[in-house]
Amino acid sequence: MRVALPSFTALALVYLVLPSLIIVPMSFSNQLYLTFPPPGWSTQWYGAMQTDLSWPQAAANSFLIGVPTALLSVALGTLAALAVVRGRLRFAAAASALLVAPMLLPHVIIAIGLYPVMLDLGLLRGYLGVIIGHTVVAMPLVFITVAAALRTYSESLELAAMTCGAGPWSAFRHITFPMIRMGVVVGGLLAFATSFDELMLSLFLTGPGTRTLPRLIWEQMNAYLTPTIAAVATLILGFSLLLLAVVAVLQRARPVESQAP
């Protein structure tokens, strides 16, 4: 058992991670199209990525969509979690299931639903439309992390704050928020990562001026298949891993203690 379990874990990790890592050597290829394994090495595609202006523009779009999506998800997801966990709702369990549902639904179904709505509202191909779409799939993550944080402590803390004279906003600012801060930050990072990696909704909702990195990669895959794609994908992979590492570190950290006066 002592050997078997770690070995199995290692194998599972290889199985899960290796396909993603294959793009790393591919991005250093000296060929003109995607090959594996590459016969020779070069860093030219990282240069090409910068000279073709569509890549930096797509990267900027991904941030311009990802950051507002994260902020919107944090606001809505936190409020939803407060309502479900603290609100004494009659249908709290059903509300909870519905709030998580977009995460489980195929994105293409949400995209097909949102497309005519956004068209009607005139939000198609603009930033706002895709931000709204991404928030639908990113908000459940904030809801889950914040609801979990709220369940780590008793409601009596907030009741105590109220008897001490804290109104609803003061109680949230001084007690609730410090208690759930990690859940909010982690949920926000996960929401950002969701938007940053999302393809299906971006395909339906973005236009030439607002296309994101995943959408540009997808278009280039169809048209050119140059190792530039692998270079971009490698950078995205590195960035996503960085986000994951931040999340992992935050989740291990204890809530911040206040200083003595």
Binding site: Y153, S156, L159, P178, M179, P255, E257, S258, Q259, P261
Partner: peptide, 10 residues
């Protein structure tokens, strides 16, 4: 129901 993120004084 003490506030765990605050010291005794706070």
């Amino acid at each position: 129901a003490l506030f765990p993120h605050m010291v005794v004084f706070d």
